[in-house]
Design a binder for these strands. Structure first.
Lengths: 164, 164
DNA sequence: CTTGACCTTCCCATCATGGGAACCCCCATC
DNA sequence: GATGGGGGTTCCCATGATGGGAAGGTCAAG
């Protein structure tokens, strides 16, 4: 099976399959005489494993550990559990941070008239007028990942905006 | 005031101040004869505005819009509110996705004995044994941002692990 | 006049992913 | 047998926000 088929069968793009091979996450695929990569059902199985782990938010580095544990039939389940629990912790931490942001902002937006007048508590807060709920957060780096283009950005839909 | 002072006063690193200037988020700073950037209190004020917006998870692109609205004394608050509400929507969407991951994984971890035996529902799930709660998710790209090194990674703490 | 703290620009790395160019291969159809 | 289209291959570039670091200029205090 060629890389395209493996991609369709596993849900991992051909681009990413090559990448994973390049960084050593998956073993070097066999080749035809023409240099085409060849994949077996077992390879596709591994790729699906990787994709599922990605879907659960594991990093490539963690997936490498998970793959090693998967292949090790003598693994101790405690090692898997440790990895998973740590990841859950990180995920929930991130959730808490994002929720904090969302709540602060939703609160501010609720107090914004959202009409043609310029008065706006959101801008005021950003400008540092007053107590400063936001100012507390000390400097968090990239909490938000990048977004794909075309996800219906800033224009148009302002649900329930006029009328406070 | 030099860039270092402005950085300390605003909470934005000197590195990022230069970057923001480079991409046009903030205006080109004045210079001394030696080429040093010079900042006023007003500049620091703007930098703080930027930092607060970052703390709320706005992208640089969105901050550019917010800054424009801030400077426009005739803005309509509805425009600010629209931006903020859209961002809240995105934040909450992201929270939902992360929570989904965390819950799936926590659920799996709860059913893992976490002992020396190899049996492990987490690995089984990743390997695709059975119903496949995870398999549903269609291919989400980078939902997690990168983490700084040294955030107490995968080693050590597995809270309440032994004993199912 | 030296030293050390600061500034400057420029390049590199991150992380996972896609886009695209330039080129090669295979199979089916005319 | 030629040709066309839909594969494959490698290599480079871009993303977003951020830090690291090198090489070199500047400034103030001792």
């Amino acid at each position: 099976m060629n890389i395209g088929d493996a991609a369709r069968a596993s849900g991992v793009s051909a681009k990413m399959i090559r990448y994973y091979e390049g960084i050593g996450l998956i073993p070097r695929a066999g080749r035809t005489e023409a240099g085409y990569r060849v994949y077996s059902e077992q390879d596709v199985h591994s790729l699906r494993f990787v994709r599922r782990a990605r879907d659960l938010g594991f990093s490539v580095e963690q997936i490498a550990e998970l793959l090693a544990l998967w292949r090790d039939r003598d693994r101790a389940s405690v090692d898997v559990k440790r990895l998973a629990s740590e990841h859950v912790r990180v995920l929930e931490e991130r959730v808490a941070q994002l929720l904090q942001m969302a709540e602060t902002l939703r609160h501010l937006a609720e107090h914004c008239h959202g009409d043609e007048r310029p008065e706006c508590p959101i801008i005021d807060e950003l400008a540092g007028a007053g107590n400063g709920t936001v100012t507390e957060a000390p400097y968090k780096p990239g909490l938000l990942p990048r977004r794909k283009a075309g996800t219906a950005a800033t224009a148009g839909s302002a649900p329930a905006c006029h009328g406070d």
